[in-house]
Design a protein around this nucleic acid. Structure first.
Lengths: 168, 168
DNA sequence: CGACTGAGTTGCTTGACGCAACCCAGTGTG
DNA sequence: CACACTGGGTTGCGTCAAGCAACTCAGTCG
């Protein structure tokens, strides 16, 4: 398999930029959506699989990679048979500003017919979160744990589900 | 809207989140790196191809898609034979906060041995740009046009090239 | 007993990516 | 003049990753 001396795997060879290095890890298809779902409280394999509609083998591969990269942590919540949950590490939580920026961009340029399907609010004061991950009400610079998703006006049916997740 | 028989193209079917919709457009391999390069002053096909090391057919496909999505604009800078340059639209420039967030995350968690290879500074005051796209010196909330890349300490040899680009 | 759950793995097929070669119009070099 | 070179791609081919369905395995429920 190793034809040359340098075999990088899912990489952007020759790129010296940190954006490229970030994308080598989280730029693979599904990776960022998995991180988003875990951030929103989906922690288990089947829950993620059903929510995302991703193939099971691909989900398995992505979770493995994200754990390897120390973005997720795999913990057993039950023994015999072993059952696992995935949690975000600090490194994973620190992807929050990037996700917020992408969410804001998507909301601005391709919102659904009724507006954004999901909003992020500051837990403490309930203010909306800006595209820079700051609170538009109190002005604070926020981090992953300071915010919470709530269903937005563009949401029709999955609202109940999203609400249940948001309430965690 | 996006649930049943409707087949979107490079999509995450069934996802109602704006992050997913963003990633349908800019989540494809190479797309964000192309946007970054155009933002840094690389505007021509060959320049992008050599800089990124991407296959020519793939670059062609990505540029086409990005133009279609109104993220890039293709303009002829010469006739007979026609030669083109790519420019960012407002929509494309608005990806800047997301790129900055990814850059900051990469710098924090996988910096090169000598530190980050590329820094972003506020044009007006020369201050460093934070992971939220604000100026750490003057505190202003910045946009793409307010900032400029400069080579960082982690850069060895391509410095000359990057400097030439940064000076635009 | 049989069905179901959770967390995957295996095998097969389709589609995307990487690579090299080619095209075409005009320009510079011997 | 012939030839090579440049810029901006397109075409063809092989490989690798993604999608899909089926299967496993340990334990629990009806």
């Amino acid at each position: 398999m190793c034809n040359d001396h340098v075999v990088l795997r899912n990489d952007y060879p020759g790129q010296i930029c940190s954006i490229a290095r970030s994308l080598e890890v989280v730029g693979e298809r599904w990776s960022l959506l998995i991180v988003r779902d875990v951030m929103n409280g989906r922690r288990r394999f089947d829950e993620l699989q059903k929510g995302l509609g991703v193939a099971r083998n691909v989900l398995s591969a992505r979770l493995g990679r994200l754990v390897e990269e120390d973005i997720l942590e795999r913990r057993a919540y039950q023994r015999r048979p072993d059952r696992y949950e995935y949690f975000l590490t600090e490194k994973g939580l620190d992807l929050w500003p990037a996700l917020v920026a992408l969410l804001a961009w998507g909301d601005r340029y391709s919102p659904g017919p009724n507006g954004p399907p999901m909003l992020i609010v500051h837990k403490e004061c309930g203010g909306a979160v800006s595209d820079r991950g700051t609170c538009e009400a109190c002005g604070k610079v926020l981090h992953a744990r300071d915010a919470r998703p709530v269903p937005g006006p563009g949401l029709a049916k999955a609202a109940v589900n999203a609400q249940a997740l948001a309430a965690r």
